[in-house]
Amino acid sequence: MQERLSLIDLKVKIGKIIFKNSVLVASGTFGYGEEYSELFDLNRLGGIITKSVTLNPREGNPPPRTCETPSGMLNSIGLANIGIEKFIQEKLPFLRKFNTRIIVNVAGSTVDEYLQVVEKLNRAKGVDMLEINISCPNVVEGGMVFGSDPECAFRCVKSIRKATDYPLVTKLTPNVRDIGEIALAVEDAGSDCVSLINTLVGMAIDSKTKKPLLANITGGLSGPAIKPVALAMVWKVAQKVKIPVVGIGGITNTEDALEFLLAGASLIQVGTSNFIDPQTAIKIIEGLKNYCKGNKISKIKSLIGKLKIGD
């Protein structure tokens, strides 16, 4: 049985990088990997995307930073992170030990800041890919600003493209008029793939106290509530660009993952669901294997973008 299963090919190749399976864990929901390492074998993951890292350490926004909403949650963490120097010294050596793809998510408030972070990562060991976060809704400067305008997005990614040999995945925000336009711009700028979606701007109010539930007033919505929006955007972007698409948004089980693959995602990321059940990603990997077996599919790749429209 084990042998039969291992004949199923879950591998996905993006550029020169081979992922052992399509299931990654999303930035900001898996810390620096170590937080989950007692709970399961990280080697089983297709890849780990680390918490957004910036040039200098960031304290983040005042609390309360999170609240629950119907089938979802809001967060306004504000890119709290330890800064690139400490990340390379203290977090990367641990992650390097695992046989999984390590993708470092990079954020900045100016193009120059992104470049300085990338420059430091160029000299670091154990990084497979960079995810460029041009989509954080919770910071005043930068973040989403770069992701909301095709020209800004192009300039930002183009500069990073010139500054590094790492394969790039650009993470897109759904808080725009036309996400396809931004995807095309970063494709033109040389991004190797795009990941989407980051969180949707949202808000929650306590009618008794007449106060917002987040100190930052607004935050980013994630979880099952955003899945239909994410699916539509992944489908739309996959039609537009030639580069691979990484699907994110409300994925909690194997069916969700399959839906994203059918809509055109080559890889998927599990986010909020890591909080609910830390084993989600592992369960999806097993689920995809069983699905392939049950449906006599030898390569998972063959499912990507196979949405049937019409009769």
Partner: peptide, 17 residues
Amino acid sequence: ETHMPCGLGACFGCVVK
């Protein structure tokens, strides 16, 4: 006490000054 999405130190959602 506060709201705790992960409980594991991964999300930075549960902070105190």
